[in-house]
Amino acid sequence: MSLEKSAEPEHPAPAPATGAPSPAPAAAHGPGAVRASDADRDRIADILREALAEGRLEPDEHAERLDALYRSKTLGELQPLIGDLPAGQRSQPPGPAAPGPGPGQGRDMSFGGHKHGGIRVAGAKNVVAVFSSANRAGTWRVGSKVSAVAVFGYVELDLTEALFEQQHVTINATSVFGGVEIRVPENVTLRSNGSGVMGGFEVREREATDLRAPVITVQGAAIMGSVEVKAIEGKRLRDLGNG
């Protein structure tokens, strides 16, 4: 006599739960994943420069962090660069920069207020040379802020033929074992707010006679390097508003 086996298993598998949450995927988005702007990098660069001037960073450490700063792509990559500095402890992680002016809202100008084909005000421009050289010359558009960084390298900025989109321009110049040379037209106002740390920060200030002329302020630091600003005689911005 044979025994019939039950069709039902002795220990049936539990029925799948309904409504149970599935494991949360790794966060692919968040504040740290936001792309960093030039303004974000400029803020971190200012903190690093102050830390170097205060002796909190050695020149080689400063150079390494600057190199990492200008290679960074997201906000999450910026905060670790200042995490061990007082300013990094006080400040919140960098957030997205405020949106710029929409189409048609930017102020376009060159010397004399002449517009060049509806040029919008551009964001900050970074010219960086790390163990290399970089330059910006010819007819290029200068916004309200330009950063020039030379780390064991050389940067040349020639503004003698540039188109100024704003009257007030700030140039952040940092030289670490390198050199930054800036040339400007002779008929602009030139001001300085920089310092040399075992290096030279040379800006001969001047005031333009035309109140509409661009006002260029060069700030930053030269650490065992040089920052030099020259007004080139004979190079003048034309008053296009009258011509």
Rank of each mutant, 00 (worst) to 15 (best):
F111H: 05
L52E: 07
G95N: 02
A97F: 10
Y70C: 04
A122I: 15
G106E: 12
E61W: 02
G104P: 09
P99V: 03
L78V: 09
G117P: 10
G95T: 15
H114P: 08
L48D: 03
S132A: 12
R120H: 12
A97L: 06
N135S: 15
V130R: 02
P94V: 11
R56L: 13
P94I: 02
P93H: 09
H62I: 03
S110L: 00
E54V: 01
S132T: 10
R49N: 12
G88H: 05
A129P: 11
A124S: 13
A63R: 13
L81W: 05
R136W: 09
L69W: 04
P80M: 02
G123T: 14
L78P: 05
K125P: 01
F111V: 01
G100M: 04
G123I: 07
A87Q: 14
Q79M: 01
E54D: 15
H116S: 13
D60M: 08
A53W: 02
R65S: 01
N126H: 15
G118L: 05
R120L: 09
A97R: 10
H114N: 10
D60I: 13
E77I: 07
P93R: 03
L85V: 09
R90Y: 00
A51H: 07
E58Q: 15
L57Q: 04
A51L: 10
G55V: 08
S91M: 14
K73Y: 00
A63C: 03
Q79A: 13
R71C: 05
F111M: 06
G118E: 10
G55F: 06
F111A: 02
E64G: 13
H114A: 12
E64C: 11
A63N: 07
D108F: 01
E50W: 00
E54A: 14
A63H: 08
E58P: 10
E50I: 12
P96S: 14
L75W: 08
R136D: 12
L78Y: 04
H116E: 08
L66M: 11
D108T: 09
G95A: 13
G106L: 03
Y70Q: 00
G117S: 12
Q89K: 15
Q92D: 12
S132E: 08
P101Y: 00
E58C: 03
Q92V: 07
L66R: 11
L78N: 00
D108W: 02
P101M: 00
A124R: 11
M109V: 02
A134P: 00
S110I: 01
A98Y: 09
A63K: 11
M109W: 07
N135Q: 14
G123N: 14
A68V: 01
L48I: 08
L57W: 01
S132F: 02
V130A: 10
P94H: 01
H116M: 11
P94T: 05
L52Q: 11
P86L: 07
G76W: 00
D67Q: 14
A63G: 14
F131P: 06
L81A: 01
P86I: 10
K115P: 15
A63M: 13
R65L: 04
D67T: 14
D108V: 10
I119V: 13
V128T: 09
L48C: 03
D84H: 11
A97P: 12
A134C: 04
S91E: 08
L52W: 04
L81I: 05
N126Y: 04
V121H: 07
P101E: 01
V128W: 00
